[in-house]
Amino acid sequence: MRENVALLALLYPPTGRGLSPADLRRRFAEGELPSDVLQHPAEGTLLEVDVTEALDAAARELEVWEAEGIIVLTPFDDNYPTQMRSVFDYPLAIYARGEVRSDRLSAAIVGSREVSDTGLKFASELASLLSEDTITVVSGLARGVDGSAHRAALAAGGRTVAVLGNGLRHVYPSEHRALQDQIAETGLVISQFRPEARPNRQTFPQRNITMSAYSSITVIAEASEKSGTRIQANAAIKHARPLVLTSQVVRDTTWGATYAGGGYDVTVVNSATEAQQAVREILSRAQHAARWLTRA
């Protein structure tokens, strides 16, 4: 708790400007704790704030959020998602509603908002199949592919996680309010943005990067050349996460074709059943590697 409060004070000081996430990650990697950084900010930074004032303000905010049922997770919590610790750009704070689990066996199903019937069917079928395999379905609560994947996972009795591009006090799109509430009741809704934050053009690309970090695999059901899912595809490659693309994505986008033919860990599929098999094989491979490392 103490380090969480100190980290929030670093991120959102009442006066001045906090250190950048990259600077904080670097100092944490060097062994410093948030309380250490707060007491000894680097010379020349803009962290011009009374430490006691910053800690008191952060503690008050944390108390308000927790009273609303919002769980605040940082890398200094034992239940911070372990898969996110392995990426270089992990979120320094996550705000959540629902049941926090490791979700190491998970796959993000993402795609265009303006999706074809074929894309919707693929997302729905794959989410159902993965739920039957007790694999967590992760998506971004957007219209189109995301909503289809969430609803199918819920209908199949599976676990689904929604990663938002806004704070938890808001719903976007507004017609997904009931869906967001249902996911929070039976699965998990998370955001890297403060609860009061509204969505904008910058938050959705950041959301896609976080979704890649949270998920063991990213599956892109359907996309156009300028689809935001290309950001998640790029993030998955940088995070060393396997990527599954439908043949439509490879055929109709230059970035899909580049990733499929570029020597990356990319699998191209033609159906939801093929995608299910690819996810099974990738997760089985990862579990085998983890057991081997444990024995070593």
Rank of each mutant, 00 (worst) to 15 (best):
G261M: 07
S174R: 15
V110Y: 08
T253L: 04
A155V: 09
L11W: 00
G256T: 02
G147V: 02
Y12K: 03
P21I: 12
V266K: 07
A57C: 01
V87R: 00
A96Y: 02
L243A: 09
V49M: 13
D77P: 01
E32R: 12
T273F: 10
I183N: 04
G16T: 13
S86D: 09
L38G: 01
M211K: 00
N270T: 14
F204I: 14
D50C: 12
I70T: 05
T267P: 00
S212E: 03
S247I: 14
R27I: 12
D77K: 02
R104Y: 13
A162L: 02
V72S: 07
M84L: 15
G111E: 07
N200H: 08
D181Y: 07
I190F: 07
T186H: 12
K226T: 14
G119Y: 10
R241S: 07
R2S: 11
G31F: 10
Y259S: 04
N79W: 11
A142E: 08
Q39D: 15
A162E: 01
R285V: 09
A107P: 03
R207N: 02
A54N: 04
A197R: 06
E61V: 06
L154Y: 10
R241V: 07
V219K: 01
R194M: 12
A67L: 08
F28G: 01
S212H: 01
E225H: 10
Y172W: 13
A296L: 12
L179M: 14
T253Y: 00
R143T: 03
T258Q: 14
E43Y: 01
H176F: 08
F88C: 05
A152V: 10
S224D: 10
E63V: 10
L24A: 09
L73E: 11
Q39N: 15
E99L: 14
I231C: 06
V100D: 00
A6S: 15
Q182H: 11
L129C: 03
Q276A: 15
A58F: 12
A290Q: 15
F193N: 01
A235K: 02
D252I: 03
G256K: 02
D50E: 13
R198C: 00
A272I: 06
M84Y: 09
G31C: 12
A127W: 12
R169I: 02
R26E: 15
I70A: 02
K121G: 06
T118G: 11
I109T: 10
T210V: 13
S124F: 09
A127H: 11
A149E: 10
E3C: 12
A235R: 00
G111S: 12
E3V: 04
G111D: 07
Y172T: 13
L24Q: 05
V219T: 09
S271G: 07
M211V: 06
L126H: 11
R285C: 14
S215G: 05
R201C: 03
A93S: 08
Q182P: 01
S174L: 15
L55S: 02
S191F: 07
R251T: 08
A58L: 13
S227N: 12
G262M: 15
T246S: 09
A155Y: 04
E274P: 14
